[in-house]
Design a protein around this nucleic acid. Structure first.
Length: 581
RNA sequence: CGGGGUGUGGCGCAGUCUGGUAGCGCACCUGUUUUGGGUACAGGUGGUCGGAGGUUCGAAUCCUCUCGCCCCGACCA
């Protein structure tokens, strides 16, 4: 491809509405343009990257025995009513009507459609397992689209669905996909971790997220420094670890703490360690109050609380609701509580079990208790459970080593679904015993456009993108440094022809631009190898070859340039022989 | 949806407080010049100042309403 013909309008300046690096660089590099909030145009460079990622996905999924299909984007409300999600899904589902008033939605995901397909034609367990996937635009009317491609409303997603006759067979399908996902993200050149995840509203009992490690990630994950345990902080289970007990138990005293509400303020004011303070929060689970206690330096994990209570919905209580319980916001504690608060469900994080000498709110304005011992002073509290968020340094639930925390971008998520959809929509087969049984499902997603953005978040410098080889829009970028010198142009042209003959994916910057501009664009676009042809090098019979990821420039004799590139693309470190000392 | 911000040629911005009829840099077009990390000079194209209404002799600027976009919170690939 000639740069003079390529539709890739690069920008010198960063558009003011782009905040995250991937969004900035994709826009500046002429990869994408925004149509409206959360909806983007993919220009030729971006689409090449997308097709590379898709090709990797296809290869690995086909290898795992899945088959590619293509389902409709517009879906009738009928099947969504059948699964119950027409009600459940909420405003994220973009709904519309056709000319006859019939209700439809734009597919945010395709469980309903696929179940409808499979239930029509699959009758016998002998036809299973089946695993079908598609790569297609999805639409989710996100509350707040943000960060460019990282959270768009319309995005390209690969979604796959497996159908099995039994739970054990379904788990095998799940494992196959787990392996395939590892292979896919590895081949995309990403630094990622599969982590144990919450199943969320999709339901089911087993789930992994594939998280790309990046500072700009929105998800917090913990990963064991010793074994291969990794989990979303929301999910990471924490074993009971009794705190060091103080032998000399002090007696309970009131302390005046004027205007000191936060743990930080109280601990500073009373000169007590944050870990000796108790954080007491009021939550509302399905309209009933729940009071949660964690150590001062810990965070309550609402998802764990929700699971513990088997609640549908959970949220923080409002000021009014706290008052209504006879509690004083900022000074809540487990001792001397009002009758109505007494009746609430109390959950105490098991880290607090047996702790003494604690600072807690006194349930009166401007007062705390000090020297509280939970066992001695609050014997009515018996529900010690895991309700806190995992943090850096916590022990691994598998091996006990330290957990380290990371930020991650979720690029893939796999779920074991069980029979949630197949039961609701009567998707059944006859099993070996001749009994009609709901199929056991799994579903598996990859955000293709998000993979592209995540790759940039992880691989860039201040000049531009540094694509992993496997998903770069081109493999080689040839530049002419002077477009008015015949020898330079001829040499570059012949290299360009040669590269094409060797099936190297090459972008040839033949534009009538000065060298500076071409270098800037090459750095910005981020193609893995750059070959610069200029009068200076030509006098010595060499081209200047550079890896995008490194600063070194190699002076390679012209006749050997394409061999060198070819061998480098195969993974050899072939350029090093020309290191200029 | 709540909170904060912003909207002025393709992009980045000034002008708004204190009304006087739109400006700068980049990009783009023409010519000359230059040719190894965004060359220099000259000339030029392009803007209903997000939209509607109002105040005024006069509105980018003041008032009212409205829409878009960005950021922070609950969701997810």
């Amino acid at each position: 491809m000639r740069a003079s013909k390529l539709y890739a309008p690069t920008l010198k300046e960063t558009p003011s509405d782009a905040e995250v690096v991937s969004h900035q660089l994709l826009t500046r590099g002429g990869y994408i343009r925004k149509l409206t909030a959360g909806i983007y145009d993919y220009l030729p460079l971006a689409y090449r990257v997308i097709r590379k990622i898709e090709a990797i996905i296809r290869e690995e999924l086909d290898r795992a025995g899945a088959q590619e299909i293509l389902l409709p984007t517009v879906q009738p409300a009928e099947i969504w009513r059948e699964s119950g999600r027409w009600q459940q899904y909420g405003p994220e589902l973009l709904r519309m009507k056709d000319r006859k008033g019939g209700e439809f939605c734009l597919g945010p995901t395709h469980e309903e459609v696929i179940v409808d397909l499979v239930r029509r034609d699959v009758r016998s367990w002998r036809q299973l397992p089946i695993n079908l996937y598609q790569i297609q635009g999805k639409f989710r009317d996100e509350i707040r689209p943000r960060a460019g491609l990282m959270r768009g409303r319309e995005f390209i997603m690969k979604d796959a669905y497996s159908f099995d006759v039994s739970e054990s067979a379904a788990l095998e399908s799940y494992d196959l996909m787990y392996q395939a996902y590892n292979a896919i993200f590895q081949r995309c050149g990403l630094d990622f971790r599969p982590v144990e995840a919450d199943t969320g509203s999709i339901g089911g009992s087993r789930s992994h997220e594939f998280q790309v490690l990046a500072e700009s990630g929105e998800d917090a994950i913990v990963s064991c420094s010793h074994c291969d345990y990794a989990a979303n902080v929301e999910q990471a289970e924490l074993l009971a670890q009794p705190s060091a007990s103080h032998d000399n138990q002090s007696s309970l005293e009131r302390a005046h703490t004027p205007m000191k509400k936060s743990i930080e303020e109280v601990s500073t004011y009373l000169k007590r360690a944050v870990t000796d303070c108790v954080k007491t929060l009021v939550l509302i689970a399905d309209e009933s109050p729940v009071i949660a206690l964690v150590r001062g330096d810990h965070e309550v994990n609402e998802i764990k609380v929700k699971k513990r209570l088997a609640a549908q919905m959970i949220r923080m209580a409002t000021e009014e609701e706290i008052e209504h319980l006879g509690l004083v916001s900022g000074f809540i504690g487990p001792y001397e509580v009002s009758d109505s608060a007494q009746e609430a469900r109390w959950l105490i994080d098991h880290t607090l079990k047996g702790t003494t000498d604690l600072v807690v709110g006194a349930n009166r304005s401007d007062e705390h208790f000090i020297g509280l011992s939970l066992q001695r002073d609050c014997p009515q509290l018996t529900e010690y459970v895991d309700i806190r968020m995992a943090a850096d340094g916590d022990p691994c639930p598998r091996c006990g080593s330290n957990l380290r925390s990371f930020k991650g971008i979720e690029v893939g998520h796999i779920f074991y679904l069980g029979t949630k959809y197949s039961e609701a929509m009567k998707c059944t087969v006859l099993d070996e015993t001749g009994r009609d049984t709901p199929m056991v499902m799994g579903c598996y997603g990859i955000g293709v456009t998000r993979v592209m953005a995540a790759a940039i978040e992880q691989n860039h410098d201040r000049f531009g993108i540094i694509w992993p080889h496997s998903i770069a829009p081109f493999e080689l970028h040839i530049l002419t440094l002077q477009s008015n010198v015949d020898e330079v142009v001829d040499c570059a042209e012949s290299l360009y022809q040669g590269a094409q003959e060797r099936r190297i994916e090459v972008l040839f910057d033949d534009r009538d631009l000065r060298a500076g501009g071409k270098f800037k664009d090459a750095d910005l676009i981020g193609i893995p190898y750059r070959v610069a042809i200029g009068g200076r090098g030509l006098k010595e019979g060499v081209a200047e070859v550079k890896r995008r990821a490194e600063p070194t420039v190699y002076k390679v004799p012209i006749p050997q340039v394409l061999d060198a590139i070819e061998r480098e693309l195969k993974g050899e470190d072939y350029l090093s022989q020309w290191v200029d000392q």
